[in-house]
Every structure is written in structure tokens, then in C-alpha cells.
């Protein structure tokens, strides 16, 4: 499933044009990206939480060559699915 299929689904469910559905989907995604960029978490009830985590610099190794290297401090995004989401996937 890609964005095109989500647009299709909104169009069928709500009855707005695909063009409007696509515009809204893009705006939702952009708003979420801006929020996460600020380091703010997003909680979608019934779906899950997106949390930005700060990782410290650490030492690692190139798994191919074994050469030691420094993994720089960075921000990663984690998603934790809500219990509703988890049970939707496990039912049937």
C-alpha cells in the first residue's frame, strides 16, 4: 500500500475528490514531520505514538571490515503501536 491507495480509500470513504484527499494527506504528513522535527512527540489514540529519541555518540565497528568507527550523536524516530493496533493485527 502506498500514498495513492490511502488517497483512494479516503475518496471512497468520505466522498471528497482524490485531489483534495491527496492534498490533505500531504498536509497531515507535513504537519507530522514539522512536529517531529521540533523534537515533539505525536500521540495518535487507537494507532500509536511517534517519539523522537536523542542518541549519544558511541563507538562502533564497520560490520564488514571490523574497523572501529565513531557513530555520531543523532536523533532517531521510534514508533510504539497502541494496544488497539496490536490486537487488530493479531485477531483472525
Amino acid at each position: 500500500m502506498t500514498k495513492v491507495d490511502i488517497v483512494e480509500r479516503i475518496h471512497e470513504n468520505i466522498g471528497i475528490t482524490k485531489r483534495d484527499a491527496a492534498m490533505i494527506l500531504e498536509t497531515v504528513l507535513e504537519t507530522m514531520k514539522e512536529t517531529l522535527e521540533r523534537g515533539e512527540k505525536i500521540k495518535i489514540s487507537g494507532f500509536g505514538n511517534f517519539v523522537v529519541r536523542e542518541k549519544r555518540e558511541r563507538k562502533g565497528r564497520n560490520p564488514q571490515t571490523g574497523a572501529p568507527l565513531t557513530i555520531k550523536a543523532r536523533r532517531v524516530l521510534t514508533f510504539k503501536a497502541s494496544p488497539v493496533f496490536k490486537s487488530a493485527i493479531n485477531s483472525k
Binding site: 491507495d5 490511502i6 471528497i16 484527499a21 495518535i44 487507537g46 494507532f47 493496533f85 485477531s91
Partner: peptide, 16 residues
């Protein structure tokens, strides 16, 4: 509200 719910529902359904 309906549209945003529909977005997250469609992702959930696809994974299910």
C-alpha cells in the same frame, strides 16, 4: 476529523 481517522484506519487495515 473523518479524513484523518480514515488515514490511520487504512494503514491499520492494510497491516491487519
Amino acid at each position: 476529523e473523518l479524513i484523518v481517522n480514515s488515514i490511520f484506519e487504512s494503514i491499520k487495515d492494510a497491516l491487519a
